[in-house]
Write a protein that binds this DNA or RNA. Structure first.
Lengths: 334, 334
DNA sequence: TTGTAAGCGTTATCAC
DNA sequence: GTGATAACGCTTACAA
């Protein structure tokens, strides 16, 4: 295993018969280099297989050309099959590829992980930080922002910090879903809410409350944590407390999926006896029994948009938070 | 937005009244520093909020303390809900957290992305590279390995390159599944194979072939690409060509899921008329109708094991490829 | 045990 | 247009 000495700027310069400075200019695309010299340098670069040392570059430019994506990794939930995090990762990766920057992934589940994220990001080892759906009132985004580190969150920060964010229109999406239920004559509409320490959970519940209140109907609420398991429990609870319910809006497709099964086990037919609507539009939604009507959120777009904002922020531009639209996908469950 | 000058070693040294070298020693945990001095330095570090500049450190140590995870991102497949890539990411992240190293994620879908990965990794911007399930005979892992860059693949490289890998026991897992079908009296056992340009696809088909041949039964094969869509198509094709089939082994849970629906649409009952077994044990498998019997592969473990090997390789140790066991999870579909 | 000093490979500011 | 040269912040012989 030969530790092939990597060629440096110096080596390229010697080979091309020019100075280091000139090679640097060519490599960085400066236009002030004479045609023939530029060609000579390019040839030398190719012949030697020169690749710039990013550490050296970072040291002087104070840029790292990489950004961090911080995921909460709430134990099992993250990377279950709800596709939210993979979607964000994918969107971010696409956008960064275009900008030729790197994606550093950090899971901040444990307190130790959280510290690690703080050290790493405050240490300016990245040009900016993306936070994916936080739990509770995490002070980190606000803290980083105050230190002048570019930060963008997915969803409005719960601690009220003035940090730019990208989110989807939870309230509007849920309102559309509940109205769809109302339009089809449902009058005992329940909800399986998401965790109330996350924006997505809070806002989807708010959307439900607004809409049933407007219609003069009662609130029938049970709370889960977006997982199937919690959805099953919540559905059974709702059935026990409100046996006459005729519709359920679940704040995630996973919970809706479990609700579908719980309803079947309880002898209710979907949608005849009870209509069900979910939120997310994960791939599985089209394959449940019956196929799930759901509110689609543009999750890859979310990742892309967050990244685009972050890059602009890092470039010194002023940016504004963005809310992306949702869309009701009608299948057979409602 | 004040560009808060970050404190350097120099600043800490001045504050603690020692030399830069001593601070460096303390920061890097050298034991040859006198107790009181160490304390003084630690205090200065804390007071100033000093965080080492990794670029500067890399420049001199020639290490980056980060490793790349390369994902193929075959269009839609990656980050669909098969949880394979998220699982690998998660395992890698866990293991790297323990080692206090960073995870750089690279999607290498397009040819441009592929080039980008090559430039970046050959440029020694990472201490090692993890490749997740390659398509076809990608020459990159072998090329990097020959350059002396630590590389570990998930699955044996198809181009025969001598690169260490971690894989799961596809053949054994499938054999167990098919024998389970045989034991329950099935005799017309079909398979929906995975893509034949991926190890997972190839080996799972081989496992099926071996086992039905041993039993003296005919091969009934249709091929998909691990997605639900392809699974549905394959299932319909199998039903058309072999209407008397009484069991199906699908090389992925997604394809098995689609097969379940296709069978129902064709009026076959599962498992009464046709038994179905999948591969993966994704979360959805427990929620299909009926719940899916499947071969579980330890996907997070795969990510962890790959990472552990890579770190040892980067540390100069000799390592051996590893094959992880699979397990048949019996539910109701077979 | 601690300090001095020489790089690590770039970019950027000057002169020329 | 091109070339010296001084940083950038750190680690690590080597000296003391």
């Amino acid at each position: 295993m030969t530790t092939a000495q990597r060629p440096t700027l110096e080596a390229v310069a010697r080979r091309a018969g020019v100075s280091r400075a000139t090679v640097s200019r060519v490599v960085n695309g400066s236009t002030t280099v004479a045609e023939p010299i530029r060609d000579a340098v390019r040839r030398a670069v190719a012949e030697l297989g020169y690749v710039p040392n990013l550490a050296a570059r970072s040291l002087v430019t104070q840029r790292t050309d990489s950004i961090a994506l911080v995921l909460p990794e709430a134990a099992t939930r993250v990377f279950s099959d709800d596709q939210v995090f993979p979607g964000i990762i994918r969107g971010a990766a696409q956008e960064l590829e275009a900008a030729d920057k790197q994606l550093v992934l950090m899971l901040a589940g444990s307190p130790a992980g959280h510290d690690r994220v703080e050290r790493y990001t405050t240490g300016r080892h990245v040009d900016g930080v993306l936070f994916a759906s936080l739990h509770g009132e995490d002070p980190l985004p606000g803290r980083l922002a105050r230190l002048g580190i570019p930060v963008v969150c997915s969803g409005r920060p719960l601690d009220g910090a003035d940090v730019p964010y990208v989110d989807v229109d939870h309230v509007g999406g849920v309102a559309t879903a509940v109205r769809h239920l109302l339009d089809s004559g449902r009058r005992r509409i329940a909800t399986i809410a998401g965790p109330q320490d996350m924006v997505a959970g809070i806002e989807r519940l708010a959307g439900y409350r607004n809409t049933v209140a407007e219609a003069g109907l009662p609130e029938l609420v049970a709370t889960g944590d977006f997982t199937r398991e919690s959805g099953a429990t919540a559905m059974r609870q709702l059935l026990a407390e409100h046996p006459d319910l005729d519709a359920v809006f679940a704040a995630s497709d996973l919970m809706a999926h479990a609700a579908l099964r719980a309803l079947r086990e309880a002898g209710r037919r979907v949608p005849d006896d009870v209509a069900v609507i979910g939120f997310d539009d994960i791939e599985t939604a089209a394959y449940t029994e019956p196929p799930l009507t759901t509110v689609r959120q543009p999750i890859v777009q979310l990742g892309r948009q967050m990244t685009r904002l972050l890059l602009r922020l890092a470039a010194g531009e002023a940016i504004e938070s963005v809310v992306l639209p949702t869309e009701l996908i009608v299948r057979e469950s409602a």
